[in-house]
Amino acid sequence: MREIHRPNVSDRPGSVNAETAARLVATAHRLADAARAETLRMFRSPDIHPDNKAQKGFDPVTEADRASERAMRDILAEVRPEDAILGEEFGAQPGSSGLTWVLDPIDGTRAFISGAPSWGVLIGVTDADGPIYGLVDQPFTGERFEGGLGISRLTDRQGQRELRSRGGVTLAQATLMTTYPEVGSAEEHAAFRRVADRARLTRYGLDCYAYALVALGQVDLVIEAGLQAYDVVGPIAVVQAAGGVVTDWQGGPAHGGGRMLAAASPELHAEALALLAQA
């Protein structure tokens, strides 16, 4: 039987003690607050003029992306200068602590420039073994999903509540999400269709918000391909802390990016993985 990578980040403090864990969580919230201010300042503004990062096609970036990441990096330079940073817009910065902050200042820039509130700010912390804490923040709706270091919670305008993924759902009963209908290559699309054809409902387009909904118990599966580390570290920690399972399409670690399968339960993960992993 294939060995599945199933770390429980909510119970694995990794290389940090309780005092350091508390400081990391406090710092993550400070970063998210700063990113909220920068992104909301420009969201649904007529002055947003995206640049295109792609040589072929359209991969937008805005000044909101850059301002959000700069604000988070400035805070880390002040309070966590020994930690490494990996960010989408400004790349990698080495550190000496063994911890890395993985930042996506706006995950879902296409949604952002379209005025749709399905984008988010992603913040993750990794040690040598992978994610130990993650945060998915949706500034416009005021929702903040976080997981790891003993935490699994949603904070919104109504207060706080525990995040818990949904159990007892088979693939035939499941709601499946992905960002793009084509998923990736023709081979990847075919693998996705093997799962989608057996799921009860398939929906598209929510970027990081789909992973937050898995942690919230509203969605059962997210399957994607072509991801980068900054796309996945925060969501992985949130989903796993809520009781879900996240791996690549072969059952291995997914925090480096590439192909990702997030499932609300181990049983549902096994069903989907068996279809994705078919030659």
Rank of each mutant, 00 (worst) to 15 (best):
107 D>P: 13
127 D>Q: 09
258 G>C: 05
147 G>K: 06
106 I>S: 01
156 D>N: 12
95 G>V: 10
160 Q>R: 13
18 A>N: 02
115 G>C: 04
39 T>W: 00
138 Q>C: 09
170 T>D: 08
110 R>I: 15
74 D>V: 10
158 Q>F: 15
120 G>R: 02
109 T>G: 06
276 L>G: 06
47 D>T: 09
164 R>S: 09
148 G>K: 06
28 A>F: 06
118 S>A: 15
144 R>M: 09
35 A>P: 11
23 R>H: 03
26 A>C: 00
238 V>Y: 04
124 G>A: 15
80 R>Q: 12
213 L>I: 05
213 L>Q: 14
136 V>C: 10
180 Y>S: 14
267 E>R: 11
18 A>C: 01
124 G>K: 13
94 P>G: 13
207 D>C: 14
89 E>T: 05
240 Q>D: 12
10 S>I: 13
239 V>R: 04
86 L>T: 05
132 I>Y: 12
141 T>P: 05
273 L>W: 05
219 V>K: 00
265 S>P: 03
170 T>F: 06
110 R>V: 15
64 A>E: 08
203 R>N: 07
151 I>Q: 10
54 A>L: 04
24 L>G: 07
8 N>T: 09
258 G>L: 04
15 S>N: 01
213 L>W: 13
183 V>H: 00
191 A>P: 01
157 R>I: 10
98 G>E: 13
124 G>S: 14
6 R>P: 00
256 G>D: 08
102 V>K: 11
127 D>F: 11
270 A>M: 08
196 A>H: 00
6 R>K: 04
228 Q>W: 14
56 K>E: 06
121 V>I: 14
276 L>M: 09
30 R>G: 15
164 R>G: 04
111 A>E: 13
239 V>L: 02
152 S>I: 06
205 G>S: 08
105 P>F: 12
19 E>R: 10
166 R>K: 14
54 A>E: 12
151 I>L: 10
216 L>R: 01
21 A>K: 11
69 E>D: 09
109 T>L: 05
4 I>E: 03
185 S>N: 06
161 R>F: 15
157 R>L: 11
133 Y>S: 07
161 R>K: 11
255 H>C: 01
138 Q>W: 09
46 P>E: 07
270 A>T: 11
180 Y>C: 12
59 D>K: 12
189 H>Y: 11
251 G>H: 09
104 D>A: 06
124 G>N: 13
231 D>L: 06
142 G>T: 04
113 I>C: 11
184 G>S: 12
274 A>D: 07
247 T>C: 02
85 I>V: 15
30 R>T: 14
235 P>S: 03
71 A>P: 11
64 A>G: 07
161 R>S: 15
252 G>S: 05
171 L>I: 10
110 R>E: 15
180 Y>T: 13
91 G>D: 08
178 T>H: 08
246 V>L: 03
30 R>P: 07
206 L>S: 02
26 A>L: 02
279 A>C: 01
185 S>M: 09
63 E>F: 14
48 I>D: 03
107 D>T: 02
207 D>I: 04
87 G>E: 00
22 A>L: 05
232 V>N: 03
95 G>A: 12
249 W>H: 08
11 D>L: 04
127 D>W: 10
114 S>K: 14
39 T>R: 00
150 G>F: 04
231 D>G: 07
151 I>P: 00
142 G>S: 02
60 P>A: 01
233 V>N: 00
116 A>L: 15
254 A>M: 11
154 L>Q: 03
163 L>T: 07
229 A>H: 07
159 G>V: 06
76 L>N: 03
13 P>H: 14
30 R>C: 11
